[in-house]
Amino acid sequence: MIDAPLPRAPRTRIGRFFDSDIWYSFIRSPLVILSAVVSIAFFAAALFAPWVAPHNPFDLASIDLLDSSLPPVWLEDGDTRFLLGTDDQGRDILSTIIYGARISLFVSLAAVFFSMVLGITLGLVSGYVGGRTDAIIMRIADVQLAFPAILIAMLIDGVVRGLLPRDLHGDIAIYVLIFAIGISGWVQYARTVRGSTLVEKNKEYVQAARVIGIGPVIILWRHILPNVTGPVLVIATIHLAIAIITEATLSFLGVGVPPTTPSMGTLIQVGQDYLFSGEWWITIFPGIALAVLVLAINLFGDWLRDALNPKLR
């Protein structure tokens, strides 16, 4: 199997992130600063949703169906209580975006983290141990690559729901989603980490460490892992953006979070039903919000990749 050519592993420790070069490159590009600010703003809003959002759209008792489908405040019939209008159930769009971002970000961050841990572990083991173990892990990766993330996530979701007792569904739907998106993304991490590990393990310092009797776990953890943090971080940023979109697409295909606690993706998907009837705000505002968030994360990831790659500086 040919490994995907990913950004070459920069030989840098995470500590050097904030050395003057990177910092300089950061403050020099306004677009990157903007995308960082936007990303942070989203994360903050999501984190502090109960204090930031004007309403709590997840509190069913507070929603009134009679408030539904109101346009944004600057249009005729707009209601001052709802800045960006309301959706088909009477939820405030602005609040639902904020709360939805909370869910979307939670799901995608957790999924990325899950992928990362799984991918790094398997990659390290695969690269370091080699032989049959390596062959098996990489073969599984091949099998998985045969299917797009969406398909895997969809199927995993179906199985997990089938296996678990049904009355748990409402509570665990979100974890199922995390698991499904997470498991569909580990291969990239594993391949990158394996590549770096193969290179590092033959270096003299690792050989030396081995000779003096340091155990493999410590070698992997102390000596090899730090070398792969750069590329892994880059993959993670891009993967975060993809995870957010995957979550939205899964909603479109009907496997997502419960409709009473919509994510941004669910909101877009629901709003799509109202695109032709003129209630564009239900889908367009969350759509813009999602695009801006993903764009910001991507731009930041781009910059990070270039900045971390010493050859490009």
Binding site: A241, I245, A248, T249, Q272, L275, G287, V294, L295
Partner: peptide, 18 residues
């Protein structure tokens, strides 16, 4: 180009289609 192309992966495919 770089920024514009990102829109292709910033909006869910189904929304672009619709």
């Amino acid at each position: 180009f770089m920024s514009l192309s990102l829109i292709g992966i910033s909006l869910p495919t189904f929304l672009i289609g619709i």
